[in-house]
Nucleic acid binder design. Structure first.
Lengths: 227, 227, 227, 227
DNA sequence: GATGAATGAGGCTTCATTCAT
DNA sequence: GATGAATGAAGCCTCATTCAT
């Protein structure tokens, strides 16, 4: 509401606009000019804050990922490993639910390009995995979790479950239409542009899914008392 | 070496070339002309077999996915649900190991664009999930698997585990260099183009990982006798 | 009906197909492959009979023009100049009416490209004009027509009237819809693809128009008895 | 020479360049890059002002046509119908003489494609015809012109005369070479590329031709006092 | 800092023409 | 003569980025 923009104001507005536009169109289809328009700045202004469109995506990802990590650390702090794990899962999926555009960027857009997957070191994601792996490792140390699986691999697997659910949920339509419809036998591209709407399953309750994930993960990894 | 091309020869060569080029550069960075060169055909020839670059990616994906589904059906046929599940997992990861370029297309490239994620009905992937969900459902029916989680959600979760491991493995470097190296505090894009080599963990044994996944999944979903 | 194509059969079929396709799409938008398909021959076959797509248009034009000239000579033969002129006009517009596809090629397609207008000598059209100019010249000689206008210029002017009426008639819609509708103020291209249907006046009676043209031309050029 | 471009400067320069290039090569053979070069702008700049190459042609046509209509209205304003008609004709042909490149676009290029002829509503041309038809109608109302021919058809016919003369004049060479030379009997295309120079009649005096047209038209339509 | 008009490299795609069968 | 799969040159247009104001 202040007339004079707070410092960092434009930067934040650009990041928010980028998140919206990336979530809507995907990174490659997103146009810098649309981000600028959405942010209410000139095209060139974006380049005062970010080196390139790539940098914008990466900064956006890092920004979000730091928030996510901080939030997850808050949520798991001081808890026993198994509880921490359940809290981690629940909080992650709740985030997906509450901020679907952030979810799109976190789960889809960064995968959009092997350019990023392959060339970008992605330290935040490494931190994220390290944190998750750390919880598992502590559980293995204190005997509450089985140690058959290396903790960093376990972290990957857990993230895989979360990410896939997030993806399925993000791509699902609003709970209006019906179930999966199998398309015909036309050439692949024929199925583009036709919306694929009928094929999208309706949105499930991703927050409730936390229990399912928790069940799968902890029951699987948890050492059973009566072994 | 034969002068007379087998029927479908060119189409196959184009698909194979596209797989290589997409795997190397990613879909968006891939150039149709490079695919043509790689396939040993003229640029225009590609358009005798495929409607567009998009169609090429989709056809490639469908081609591969059909093979994968057929293979997985072969491998799981006639087995009890829990066994079928383990076989499914093992076969999938083995495939990733044996054909890394196919793996890239299956796990990464199709995600390259929300264009595809959102607009493409993707019936093959639906079939894939249906098959996996069917195994789970049968296990829930015969009591060998717990039914806390809806089978189609369980299928998603299992696929998430597999896909994430595949992704991690595909992106990992050959087992040469060391472990994760955290980059400094430069702007995001600085970490691009520098190879990120040091940051890529070395390749783990993805085939052996099948046991880990199987453990996680079956132990988690399997109803324990002495509950 | 003969199984073995008569000599020249294919050539004629190609020319007829070209006329249809040129009339439908225009020369530049016409595809050689569509002409081939329409003629029931292979693409390559066209090049056994014609040097190029350009040659096809020119040959088509010359073919038609020869027929037209022969017909007009038949119709005007042995008539007094003024009568010959009226017969010429009537016969030309009747032809437009009876063979609208030929009309399109004669009036529009050859104008499609300054390539043809500028680079092609067009001897048939020259013959056409010479014939028309000859009638006028004879009328000037025998005193039935005024000689204020050079006969070759008069021929041009008469052809202009005929051609414009032909064009208007060819482009007019079937006598279904109403009158001219003025479009809005959008950018030019906006009015493309929208059919322009509403803007096309309905077809008038082009055969009856011969009297109008005859009236204009002869009354204008004819020396009035009581000058 | 001014460093600061006037507003609309670039747009005008592009239109002027397009007129030159279209007149020289024809619409289809014209290259957008050549227009850009000719206008002294980058290729992409054209697309800041026009949607497409098509839009450029249409805008050019509309631009010119508006000028022409305004000029013709100025010239005919307040005149009796017969005088107005003569003024209209004279002014139109004078314009052709003074701005041959505009003439090319007005008479030839817009006919280049049935795409434009058929799909483009062309409101300016409709205005042009309406104006001309209005003059005729007024003449018919006040008895100075015969009413045998519907005024809108008369307008077409008059325009046909003007357009054909314009075309003949535009395509004629400078008054250097001789008269029409009939080419031989080679295949049509042989006569292409050879310049057809010999075949083009020399330029006649198109301004003087206004009297001829005026004579034809008014004498023909004018009711003769001593009928 | 902010602007946004201008840039221009470069890709996807078309299609007339060829030529091995 | 007939075929039609293959060719490959070439153009329209996009859009990230720059820089004069």
């Amino acid at each position: 509401m202040t007339v004079h923009s707070a410092p960092g104001d434009k930067r934040e507005r650009i990041l928010a606009a980028a998140e919206r536009v990336f979530a809507k169109n995907g990174f490659f289809a997103a146009r810098v000019s649309e981000i600028a328009k959405d942010a209410g700045v000139a095209d060139g202004t974006i380049y005062l804050y970010f080196k390139s469109k790539d940098d914008l995506l990466i900064s956006l990802f890092e920004n979000r990922m730091k928030q996510v990590i901080a939030m997850l650390e808050r949520v798991t702090a001081g808890k026993a490993p198994v509880d921490a794990l359940r809290s981690f899962i629940r909080a992650y999926l709740q985030l997906i639910h509450d901020e679907p555009e952030a979810a799109e960027v976190l789960t889809i857009e960064l995968r959009q390009s092997s350019k990023f997957m392959k060339e970008y070191a992605n330290p935040q994601f490494a931190d994220f995995l390290r944190m998750l792996g750390g919880i598992v490792a502590r559980g293995q140390d204190d005997g509450s979790l089985a140690d058959a699986v290396p903790s960093h691999i376990a972290a990957r697997m857990i993230f895989g479950v979360l990410d896939e659910l997030a993806l399925a949920w993000v791509l699902a339509k609003q709970p209006i239409s019906g179930s999966v419809v199998s398309a015909g036998q036309e050439s692949g591209a024929d199925r583009l542009k036709k919306g694929a709407s009928g094929a999208r399953p309706k949105k499930f309750d991703i927050v409730r899914a936390a229990d399912w994930v928790g069940g799968l993960v902890t029951q699987g990894l948890e050492r059973r008392s009566n072994a």
